[in-house]
């Protein structure tokens, strides 16, 4: 009897603890429901309708028609193409980041100042630096074209006004903006590589290039992988840079990205349903590419263990 009584008290205490646990989990859970799950479900339902923000969403159910239309929407494919072209900046940023990180991974005077300088673009307001770069790229009065003119005597390209050069401009800007992050990440990766590996390789007669090629690059591959994943996901969502620097989306939509087009459809053309479908299609594309990346990582991502 007494044993039973004790057990009952214990379970009551456990139960109470359980309840308290739930009580504390409740706020974030409700937050998740309200701010994540609900909008996702809402957007999915919206994507099946002709909702324009004014009419009744559920009265205008059209099934998968928005998705069908998207697949034949030439502008969607064009802006998706632009978005993918911008991703050329991801490997460029990685290579530059790794080179600079290797250079900085040593004890020299003023290294902290140097590291800080490279990180400033990352902590600066995206809008502010985008406006700054608009002036760098200005056709007549810009820094870049002034340098080109001083060096070659020729007038530089119409950076933001030309269908080809606007993409180059955006890539340059995004690489510059993201460089600080790649450097910091690669620095931490480099500092995690044990010195003995290099010493052992040197004893075996390895040269500087070989050390870099066969020790450094493989052992920072987890960092490279992380940057590839986040770079691709972020790359598909590029929006603010373009909106600020080329508010029209560029001549013939040459600078427009998927999210820019999505924004136009939702808030300028008031086709919320269509825009929601685009958001879902974009999410699916990102999901598939991320999944492929994770599947493929075994082939090239090495860890120290």
């Amino acid at each position: 009897m007494s044993n039973n009584g004790k057990r009952r008290r214990m379970s009551a205490a456990a139960l109470e603890e359980h309840r308290w646990g739930l009580a504390f989990v409740l706020p974030p859970f409700v937050g998740f429901l309200a701010f994540m799950a609900f909008p996702i479900v809402f957007a999915f339902i919206a994507s099946l309708t002709k909702w324009n923000g004014i009419n009744n969403m559920l009265d205008n159910f059209i099934g998968l028609a928005n998705y069908g239309k998207l697949l034949t929407d030439a502008k969607f494919w064009k802006v998706l193409g632009n978005t993918v072209i911008y991703m050329i900046g991801i490997p460029i940023g990685m290579i530059l980041g790794l080179i600079i990180a290797v250079g900085m991974n040593r004890k020299i005077r003023g290294i902290k100042v140097l590291r800080t300088l490279y990180y400033i673009p990352v902590i600066s307001s995206l809008v502010a630096v985008a406006i700054l770069w608009m002036w760098v790229f200005n056709y007549d009065y810009g820094l870049l074209n002034s340098i080109i003119k001083a060096l070659t005597g020729l007038h530089g390209p119409n950076w933001l006004g030309d269908e080809f050069w606007v993409k180059v401009s955006m890539i340059i800007f995004m690489v510059w903006k993201g460089l600080g992050t790649s450097i910091i990440l690669y620095l931490s990766g480099l500092q995690g590589i044990p010195r003995d590996y290099y010493e052992a390789a040197k004893i075996d007669g390895a040269t500087g290039w070989n050390l870099f090629r066969f020790i450094t690059i493989p052992l920072v591959s987890p960092v490279t992988f992380y940057m590839l994943i986040t770079g691709l996901i972020g790359g598909f969502q590029v929006f603010v840079e373009v909106l600020v620097m080329v508010p029209s989306g560029g001549l013939n939509n040459s600078a427009m990205t998927v999210v820019f087009y999505l924004y136009q459809k939702a808030f300028e053309s008031r086709q919320m349903g269509y825009a929601s479908a685009m958001a879902f299609l974009l999410a699916i594309i990102i999901f598939i590419i991320t999944a492929i990346n994770f599947k493929g990582q075994d082939r090239w991502v090495k860890t120290i263990d």
Binding site: G249, L251, N252, N253, S269
Partner: peptide, 16 residues
């Protein structure tokens, strides 16, 4: 018109 997208299409490439 219910939205002005048609107008945007016209002016987007007019500089050409």
């Amino acid at each position: 018109t219910p939205n002005s997208e048609w107008h945007t299409i016209f002016f987007d490439g007019l500089d050409r």
